[in-house]
């Protein structure tokens, strides 16, 4: 699936930059350093915006498109930040036939974002994921570590309300 590129402004801190520089220095002379550096960079920033990929390219002395090519090839890398609450909707076969598509659409319209995007306030992000192994509860979604099962689209507003207040 094509990755969504975040349009939110980059909000990296000097501390994060210092951490990233350390990671780059650690891997600088390793062959194939782009992968591990991207992984650790994502741990630091939560996602891989242009500014971060550019720093990695400069630091490892590789073209920025090489970094971007790897970042867009592997599904583990995100180009859009995760919110304080990351909502994952299972689109695995069992959930999908039980109507998880409707749940995802409802979340999308309630939050005003598409899948793989994050709200402007950084509170919610939306992910469409594959089977999480809870088919007995289909359709299923998770909000961070909380699991919600046997959902219908109309359950969405009350669930969101809990986190909006939190």
């Amino acid at each position: 699936m094509l990755k969504k590129i975040s349009s939110l402004p980059f909000q990296g801190t000097p501390e994060q930059e210092a951490q990233l520089k350390e990671v780059i220095a650690k891997h600088k002379d390793d062959p194939g350093a782009v992968m591990p550096v991207l992984q650790e960079a994502q741990d630091i920033y939560g996602y891989l915006p242009l500014e971060v990929q550019q720093m990695i390219a400069e630091g490892l002395n590789v073209p920025v498109d090489e970094v971007y090519g790897v970042a867009t090839f592997y599904s583990q890398f995100a180009l859009s930040p995760k919110g304080k609450y990351n909502i994952s909707v299972c689109l695995g076969t069992a959930c999908y036939v039980k109507g998880s598509g409707d749940v995802l659409n409802r979340l999308s319209s309630e939050l005003g974002i598409e899948a793989e995007e994050c709200t402007m306030d950084g509170k919610f992000s939306l992910t469409a994921c594959r089977c999480i192994g809870a088919c007995g509860l289909a359709p299923v979604m998770t909000v961070n570590d909380d699991v919600y099962g046997r959902l219908v689209a109309d359950d969405v507003p009350s669930i969101l309300a809990k986190y909006k207040e939190a």
Binding site: K3, P63, D65, Y68, G69, T72, F73
Partner: peptide
């Protein structure tokens, strides 16, 4: 890339 420019690459999957 041979030109040390490398502004294009294979993106996505």
């Amino acid at each position: 890339k041979e030109q040390f420019v490398g502004v294009i690459g294979a993106n996505n999957r």
